[in-house]
Design a protein around this nucleic acid. Structure first.
Lengths: 226, 226
DNA sequence: GAAATGCAATGAAAATTCTGGTGGTTGAAG
DNA sequence: CTTCAACCACCAGAATTTTCATTGCATTTC
């Protein structure tokens, strides 16, 4: 798998290249928008990682140029924190995902793999829902009944897991290993507490209640049929 | 690499086996001390992971039995939180490492790899020091001038990194990637803050100051010569 | 049906980590 | 020599996550 990285900040660029190479990808690194666009038009890449702030041409312009040249590979944007609102713009322009700096490399790798797995460009699959609850994996936003809901990282991870396995009863051990990377002989009740917090945000004040406790088994997020 | 796991709690045992198998190890799983000891004496294992609390024979007894039978593979113990003080006992009996439940699987894997890499039984290499500062990687304890110092997980990770590369100036980008798994165009000062907290614990009130800031470069932990 | 038992929910506190701002220091440029 | 910008230290407060203790509920057992 061949990946194009366009990033001007030297440390970040090297870090990305090295990490991706270690993960088994072939990587080309460009230091500005012009070089990046040129490489992208010339070479045959399976995916591109673009910084938004770039010398000469910014990330959007590179993306636009690529699409004009008929390049349909998935594109992942790296945005700084204060460019948060630019996300929407990027997604509208045809980016497939974004990541806010600073980010964990493991997170980037996971996103890259997801994009490669599902082939190029199909944003729809990044939306999940149950009843009137919606989760947007790209924007990392949740809402219920149209009202926006703020979730912390753990809450989001937990809700995402519940949604992915909608209708299935998830044992605590599974939840622990997925959301906390923890092995358990219990001894702690983080899961109960986290579940409480999540319920407070997505179930309190709403009907129907989506998260159901199955005594002795675990938790389910009811699917639309339930 | 062949590993023996002795764990009675079914979920934990399965979790361990599956995880280790996915990581490329050959795994035998025993559900109680007697079976575990028998397997350990019979088979040819590169490492053993033993729960302390086991039916029939506890972890210590299994360990003792293995050593009596001349088996010198490294042994890693899993202990519950309230058995914390048993650690010392285990280490004295010839365990090579321990892990407190609940734990992150990644943590276990890292320890296992370390034990396998350095071959069997050499506890000494698990102690690090600089001047009168000591860090015990096994017991996860630090002390300076003989006085015990409590460190949080992040603080410990940070100090361990500094000690491992004693005398080297570590750039922030390296620290960020090692301790936080984060890529940085800065934008946050977590490192400075964390360094401050660590200094408060290991340098404030002591001489000489061990952590030195190298402007524009990063941080060093002075080695004994420095 | 009452008591005992075990699991889950809850609220509150504690611990840890992160954020944002302010001010000091240093080295370079004018 | 002065000014400026970058870099870093430090603090206070906020946010997040974890722990602890208690209460409630349901199921089993007598």
């Amino acid at each position: 798998m061949k990946i194009l990285v366009v990033e001007d900040e030297p440390k970040t660029g090297d870090y990305l290249r090295q990490g991706m190479v270690e993960a088994g990808f072939v990587v080309d690194l460009a230091r500005d928008g012009v070089d990046g666009l040129h490489l992208g038009q010339t070479g045959d890449y399976d995916l591109a990682i673009l910084d938004v702030m770039l010398p000469k041409l910014d990330g959007w312009q590179v993306l636009a140029g690529l699409r004009r040249a008929g390049r349909e590979m998935p594109v992942l944007f790296l945005t700084a924190r204060d460019q948060v609102e630019d996300r929407v713009k990027g997604l509208e322009l045809g980016a497939d995902d974004y990541l806010v700096k600073p980010f964990a490399f493991a997170e980037l790798l996971a996103r890259v793999r997801t994009l490669l797995r599902r082939g190029s460009r199909s944003q729809e699959s990044q939306q999940m829902r149950a009843a009137d609850l919606e989760l947007d994996l790209l924007r990392r936003r949740a809402s219920r009944g149209g009202r926006h809901i703020d979730l912390t990282a753990k809450e989001f991870a937990l809700l995402e897991l519940l949604l992915r396995r909608q209708g299935e009863v998830l044992p605590r051990s599974l939840i622990a290993s997925q959301v906390w990377d923890m092995n358990f002989d219990s001894d702690t009740n983080v899961i109960e507490v986290a579940m409480r917090r999540l319920r407070a945000k997505i179930d309190d004040g709403f009907e129907p209640k989506l998260i159901r406790t199955v005594r002795g088994m675990g938790y389910v997020l009811e699917d639309d049929a339930g």
